[in-house]
């Protein structure tokens, strides 16, 4: 029953997103969509996935898109051409995909291949082989470590792409001017600034809790990284980019992003050198289970570092562009005034 309600709401929100022209409302609806799918995952007992969806889909992607919208403007441009060809291609691809699902086993059917030998193996043996209570983490970080490595590399590549396309050279002499504007705004944003300052340490602490609690409950590197980055983005939004840059050195963050991926890969290489397969943590220590613990801890750290720093990099790149845009606008306004 609750599944039907949630799925109906998802469809309604999806249509609203397509129909809306106001991009700000679209982003808010996307956040709602993420939250709804997170609650749908909770209803299906997939707490880890729900946590990730709530943190990434509803949280940080909404934030990053809001930053983008400050540069692009609020309303969607009206299309002049009729996108008939695109529609045809989409219908064709969709039909093919639906045709492909016909061969798949029915949803939750008991004799699906995944329920015949993969799932029982994980459920029965993972406690002995890996030795951590949360099966999802042992699947994600140990059995399927190679897939997760791919995901981390994708995130890292995204960060590099944003840096390559959007990184800007800043002129340090502008900083003082912006700082004085910030101080003038201080009184206006007093309440939210104080509440943020109270909450920030707890958000960071929560991120660390999620990072280390991934072995025992829902959580892990991805969610922890996103929460950590969200705290820093919140700080940067409220106190200005320059204040945030004083706290967080951008080149240091870029270094951390690379180190995270490197740490992850190194765990694999070390297990190769110790005579096992790539990402076979059993050989990391004398006792296989201790080796698994060590491996999972290390790669979760790698994931957390990379995710957090890539999110921070993306935010700083976009927001830095915005800052320069504003600055150029101010300068040109002043030029016009002086010429008048």
């Amino acid at each position: 029953m609750i599944n039907i309600v949630l799925l109906t709401l998802l469809v309604v929100v999806a249509f609203a997103i397509i129909r809306m022209k106001d991009l700000f409302a679209v982003i808010m609806l996307l956040g709602i969509y993420g939250l709804l799918s997170a609650s749908f995952f909770v209803a299906m007992d997939a707490v880890d996935v729900a946590f990730t969806e709530a943190a990434v889909g509803a949280g940080i992607s909404t934030l990053l898109m809001l930053v983008v919208i400050t540069m692009t403007g609020r309303s969607e441009r009206t299309t002049r051409h009729k996108p008939l060809l695109a529609l045809l291609v989409i219908i064709f691809t969709g039909a093919l995909l639906i045709y492909g699902t016909l061969d798949m086993p029915y949803f939750s059917s008991a004799d699906a291949p995944i329920h015949s030998h993969v799932t029982p193996r994980y459920i029965n043996d993972s406690m002995e082989e890996i030795g951590i209570p949360n099966i999802v983490t042992s699947v994600l970080a140990s059995y399927r470590a190679f897939d997760t490595f791919g995901e981390v590399v994708v995130i890292f590549t995204a960060g590099i792409g944003v840096l390559a396309l959007l990184s800007v050279v800043r002129h340090p002499e502008n900083n003082n001017k912006i700082t004085t504007v910030n101080d003038a705004m201080h009184e206006q944003y007093l309440i939210i600034r104080i509440v943020t300052k109270i909450l920030l340490p707890f958000i960071l602490l929560f991120a660390l809790y999620v990072q280390f609690h991934g072995d025992f409950g829902p959580g892990g590197g991805f969610q922890a990284g996103v929460i950590f980055a969200a705290a820093i983005i919140l700080y940067a939004m409220l106190f200005g980019l320059n204040t945030a840059r004083k706290v967080i050195n951008q080149s240091f963050v870029q270094l951390i992003a690379a180190i995270g991926v490197l740490l992850y890969g190194c765990v694999g290489v070390v297990s190769l050198l110790n005579g096992g397969n790539f990402f076979d943590y059993n050989v990391l220590s004398d006792d296989p289970v201790t080796g698994q613990h060590l491996g999972i801890l290390l790669i979760e750290w790698g994931v957390g570092c990379t995710v957090a720093s890539v999110m921070i990099i993306i935010f700083f790149s976009f927001a830095g562009r915005r800052e320069i845009q504003l600055h150029n606008k101010n300068v040109s306004d002043k030029d016009q005034e002086s010429s008048l």
């Binding site: 309440i191 939210i192 109270i198 909450l199 707890f202």
Partner: peptide, 13 residues
């Protein structure tokens, strides 16, 4: 505690 802090603040903002 978190909702007590965040709820009024978001309304204010």
């Amino acid at each position: 505690l978190l909702t007590l802090l965040i709820g009024p603040t978001t309304s204010h903002v």
